[in-house]
């Protein structure tokens, strides 16, 4: 996945059907031989129209992808949100040290004493602790771990 472009689409880029597609296709997609026909029928359009609209939404950057969302933990791996309080004068150097780990999937600077928040994604649960300890060793700073205990997901809705 490439980094999404930080550009806002003009407000009239999406029509009502595009918005209905964005809302409907966040939950489920059928595992049938012609799934776009099935999903299109529920939206009152043909499968071919749905495919063309999804391709356009992807090409203009309204969606970043369409497909399966995988759970790292269920594949035997692990995800963990981590935070560090990085002294401002060391921020960029620490960022370079942290980002050098391929296990760091996302990293954000945030407005708080805990000013660096990143997600570790590792092939095994042990990898989370190992990577966090390595970062602590390299930076001399504490890495706080915030593993998820429970997830509450519904998704995002655009105004239709």
């Amino acid at each position: 996945m490439t980094r999404p472009a930080r550009t806002v689409l003009p407000p009239d880029t999406l029509d009502a059907t595009d918005r209905a597609i964005l809302n409907a296709l966040q939950d489920a997609f059928s595992l049938t031989p012609r799934p776009f026909d099935d999903a299109g029928a529920a939206l009152g359009i043909t499968g071919a129209d749905l495919i063309a609209r999804l391709a356009r939404l992807r090409d203009i950057g309204a969606i970043t992808r369409f497909g399966p969302f995988f759970d790292a933990a269920a594949m035997g791996g692990a995800f963990c949100l981590c935070a560090m309080a990085v002294p401002p004068d060391r921020f960029d150097a620490v960022m370079t040290q942290v980002n050098a780990h391929p296990e760091v999937a996302h990293n954000y600077e945030r407005t708080h004493a805990l000013n660096m928040w990143f997600v570790l994604a590792t092939a095994t649960p042990d990898g989370i602790d190992r990577t966090a300890r390595a970062i602590e060793h390299e930076t001399g700073l504490r890495v706080m771990l915030f593993p998820k205990l429970e997830e509450y997901f519904i998704g995002f809705r655009v105004q239709a």
Partner: peptide, 27 residues
């Protein structure tokens, strides 16, 4: 199809869906 369904059943696949780009959509 059977393997995708089984992976969905086991939670390996959470869902098959679009990933909206919030920023592009004005958020």
């Amino acid at each position: 199809i059977a393997r995708l369904a089984a992976m969905q059943q086991r939670g390996v696949i959470r869902r098959i869906a679009v990933a909206p780009n919030h920023y592009a959509l004005g958020m």
